[in-house]
């Protein structure tokens, strides 16, 4: 155990936790915005999957990492538009529609990968960017300020999401249609337009989460997300629909995962204990958030289609 409490190992573990938290955070923040408007999207994982594929394929063909990121956002927007039409225009049940989006994203990414790529081929990974001055802080700089740009972007989105939801007219409208769409409608707020916007923002961020995942790895494989998007949705609940809560959950989940991996690498967890240790991230995160998370209530109109009639 003593090996774990050395500076280099602790720094590496924190850095690993931050990397692992990034896609959860991006997807979770996007889902928070969507749910605040009253729209539950269980299709996040599928959006991430398809976005990750397009990011990967774009980089494979162009070599440009930013084109890849933009492609992922574009896919997120398209998937978001499909989901918005289904749930807003057709007033379909959100839970089932989300599962449909998930299956579409999973299946389509698998199909496209087979048809267009075949065998996994490595691509460039997003390079680390040292934040001037901050990255020079001993140990702290290495752990927190030597990551790729999408990781920084994810954490910058936390205060931006807070500002968006609490300090802008759009944010006020989002919360209003999520709590009481009929009241908001009576006050002249377009429920449909607000939900469209919230869904598109949320799905664009899920797309960016897919890009962060695949461009951080430098490789794509079918079912790359392994259910990551569903955990992101769960983190929204555990984070009490607050961006800071979602960030705390994502970081906790990432840090526990990173610690378990580090302990395995150091043989602190013997091979015989691997199976139990593999459950630790989920169990610890659930227990910790259940006790520590500020009790918040879901938006009152969450999952409820809006109709004037």
């Amino acid at each position: 155990m003593g090996d774990f409490f050395t500076a280099s190992v602790l720094v590496a573990t924190i850095a690993s936790g931050v990397r692992l938290a990034t896609p959860y955070l991006l997807a979770g923040l996007g889902e928070t915005i969507g749910q605040k408007s009253g729209v539950l999207n269980l299709g996040v994982d599928g959006v991430m999957q398809l976005s990750a594929f397009f990011a990967y394929y774009t980089v494979l063909k162009t070599g440009n990492l930013w084109y890849g990121s933009l492609a992922a956002i574009g896919v997120g927007l398209v998937m978001g538009l499909i989901y918005a039409v289904i749930t807003i225009e057709f007033e379909a049940t959100q839970g089932i529609s989300g599962i449909g989006i998930f299956i579409l994203g999973l299946g389509l990414s698998d199909l496209l990968f087979r048809e267009l790529v075949g065998t996994p081929k490595p691509i460039r990974r997003l390079p680390s960017v040292d934040i001037p001055l901050l990255s020079d802080i001993p140990k702290v700089g290495e752990a927190l300020f030597q990551h790729n740009l999408l990781t920084y972007t994810a954490f910058v989105f936390v205060p931006l999401s807070v500002l968006l939801l609490s300090r802008t007219t759009f944010g006020l409208n989002v919360r209003a249609v999520g709590e009481n769409p009929h009241a908001a409608d009576s006050l002249g707020v377009s429920v449909e337009r607000t939900r469209y916007a919230a869904i598109l923002i949320g799905n664009a961020m899920a797309g960016l989460a897919g890009a962060a995942l695949v461009l951080g790895l430098g490789i794509f494989q079918p079912n790359l997300t392994q259910g990551l998007g569903f955990i992101a949705v769960a983190l929204v609940y555990f984070g009490s629909w607050r961006p800071a809560g979602v960030m705390a959950g994502a970081l906790l989940y990432g840090m526990v995962n990173a610690t378990v991996l580090q302990w395995k690498a150091l043989n602190i967890i013997p091979v015989s204990g691997s199976v139990l240790a593999n459950m630790a991230p989920a169990v610890i995160t659930i227990v910790a958030l259940a006790f520590l998370a500020r009790r918040g209530s879901a938006p009152a109109a969450l999952s409820q289609p809006f109709s004037r009639h």
């Binding site: 690993s16 990397r19 692992l20 995942l213 951080g216 790895l217 490789i219 494989q221 079912n223 790359l224 392994q226 990551l228 995962n257 990173a258 991996l261 395995k264 690498a265 150091l266 043989n267 091979v271 691997s274 199976v275 240790a277 593999n278």
Partner: peptide, 17 residues
């Protein structure tokens, strides 16, 4: 040093391991 990630398909965990 042996790490079993607990998954046959989780590329991210394999990367961090």
């Amino acid at each position: 040093n042996i790490t079993y990630t607990g998954s046959f398909g989780d590329v991210t965990l394999a990367s961090e391991a």
